[in-house]
Simulated assay, not measured.
Amino acid sequence: MDQRISFVTLPVADLPATRRFYLTGLGWEAHVEVPGEVLMIRTGQHLVLSLWDRAAFSREVGELQSGPGVPPLTLAHNVATPAEVDEVLATARGAGASVVQPGEHRDWGGYTGYFADPDGFRWEVAWNPGEIGRLVLPEEG
Score class of each variant (00 low, 15 high):
1 M>S: 12
5 I>H: 00
6 S>P: 00
6 S>Q: 09
9 T>A: 15
13 A>F: 09
14 D>S: 04
18 T>Y: 02
20 R>I: 10
22 Y>A: 07
26 L>I: 08
27 G>L: 10
29 E>M: 09
30 A>K: 12
31 H>S: 14
32 V>P: 00
33 E>N: 08
34 V>K: 02
39 L>T: 10
45 Q>R: 14
52 W>Y: 13
53 D>V: 05
59 R>P: 00
60 E>Y: 09
60 E>A: 11
63 E>W: 05
66 S>Q: 11
67 G>M: 08
69 G>Q: 13
70 V>I: 13
70 V>Y: 07
72 P>G: 07
73 L>T: 09
73 L>N: 02
73 L>K: 00
80 A>E: 15
81 T>Y: 07
85 V>M: 02
86 D>T: 06
86 D>I: 05
86 D>S: 06
88 V>K: 08
88 V>S: 04
89 L>S: 01
89 L>M: 02
89 L>I: 01
90 A>M: 04
90 A>G: 05
94 G>N: 07
95 A>V: 03
99 V>K: 05
100 V>A: 02
101 Q>N: 07
104 E>T: 05
108 W>H: 15
109 G>T: 02
111 Y>D: 01
114 Y>R: 15
115 F>V: 13
116 A>K: 09
116 A>G: 08
120 G>D: 10
121 F>A: 04
123 W>Y: 13
126 A>Q: 04
126 A>D: 10
127 W>C: 03
129 P>W: 00
130 G>L: 10
132 I>T: 10
132 I>E: 13
134 R>L: 03
136 V>F: 11
139 E>L: 15
141 G>V: 11
